[in-house]
């Protein structure tokens, strides 16, 4: 059962229901009562299907406007390949949603990163300055953060993933506009990526949480090259400047750079397992200008 409001936090409820379900068991993902999905929620649902050995079934949202929005966000375009859809999917119209900066887009190769950034570039400046009231220099860093986040898939996942970007009013926490970037993959995950390059630090404790801190906070990559691993440092620096949030989930753990407007937990361990790496970036509207 998918919660009525699907975001990075409530997606955990979906995973919690799968803890004891073997990977080769066929599951039914029931989103009939879901009325809203964030970019993270939608990309994570696609990723979830990729983690299953047996193609799962999917019941789409019953509310027409929700289903229609998910369709415009490209969700069903890819969900139809990954799920057996049980129910009606509205036909995809020509119109785009004005809040969507980037519909769900697959990322597999470096070329895809160029395409994503170039596609989003014309709209980014206006959204960041007009909706979030950020200075124009925020635009360059936004592209950098998006590019580095997507490259995490290209460089480390070992398979393709998904990116989506949306501007919306984040009523639940702050009543302000935010831009959310979600980048999810069902790849090897951060712990295995570091292990593959013999980059596990010398420590008695080694788990997904330590691996996440090693990669995200300390900027260690599986490559010994000292220039590697700086992407997360760049993203974190950018988000600190604009009071943004970064959360990275991999395996059974999650770490976050939590800005003052949020009450998220900096590190969580022993979560329900999820293959790959799921990354969330949120940049809020500036109000103290």
């Amino acid at each position: 059962m998918v919660p009525s409001s699907l975001d990075d936090s409530t997606f955990e409820q979906v995973l919690d229901q799968l803890v004891d379900v073997p990977r080769d068991a066929r599951i039914l993902v029931d989103a009939r009562n879901t009325t809203w999905g964030s970019p993270y929620g939608l990309t994570a649902l696609l990723t979830l299907a990729q983690t299953r050995l047996e193609k799962p079934q999917f019941l789409p949202p019953e509310k027409d406007d929700t289903s229609s929005y998910w369709n415009r966000a490209n969700f069903f375009r890819y969900a139809e390949e990954l799920y057996e859809i049980k129910g009606r999917v509205p036909p995809r119209g020509p119109e785009r949603d004005s809040r969507t900066l980037l519909e769900i887009t697959p990322v597999e190769r470096s070329d895809d990163v160029h395409t994503v950034v170039e596609k989003i570039q014309p709209k980014t400046a206006s959204i960041l300055t007009n909706n979030l009231h950020l200075e124009s220099r925020a635009t360059m860093g936004f592209a950098m953060a998006l590019s580095e986040a997507c490259q995490n898939i290209v460089e480390h996942a070992g398979c393709g993933g998904w990116v989506a970007v949306q501007n919306y009013n984040y009523r639940r926490r702050m009543g302000r506009h935010v831009v959310q970037i979600a980048v999810c993959d069902a790849g090897v995950g951060i712990r295995q990526s570091l292990e593959s390059g013999n980059r596990r630090p010398l420590t008695d404790r080694w788990d997904d949480g330590v691996a996440l801190e090693t990669a995200v906070i300390q900027g260690t990559s599986r490559f010994p090259d000292p220039g590697r691993g700086q992407g997360f440092k760049g993203i974190r620096g950018y988000l600190r400047k604009w009071k943004g949030k970064l959360a990275v989930r991999s395996g059974t753990a999650r770490v976050a750079d939590v800005p003052p407007w949020d009450d998220d937990i900096v590190r969580r361990d022993h979560m329900a397992p999820m293959q790959g790496t799921q990354l969330l970036i949120m940049i809020p509207e500036e109000v103290d200008r």
Binding site: A143, M144, S147, E148, G227, Q230, G231, K233
Partner: peptide
């Protein structure tokens, strides 16, 4: 050049 990211700057400038 329009936009630039860390990874590319690391290759083109630092290396």
């Amino acid at each position: 050049i329009g936009l630039m990211d860390y990874s590319c700057a690391d290759e083109v400038v630092a290396k």
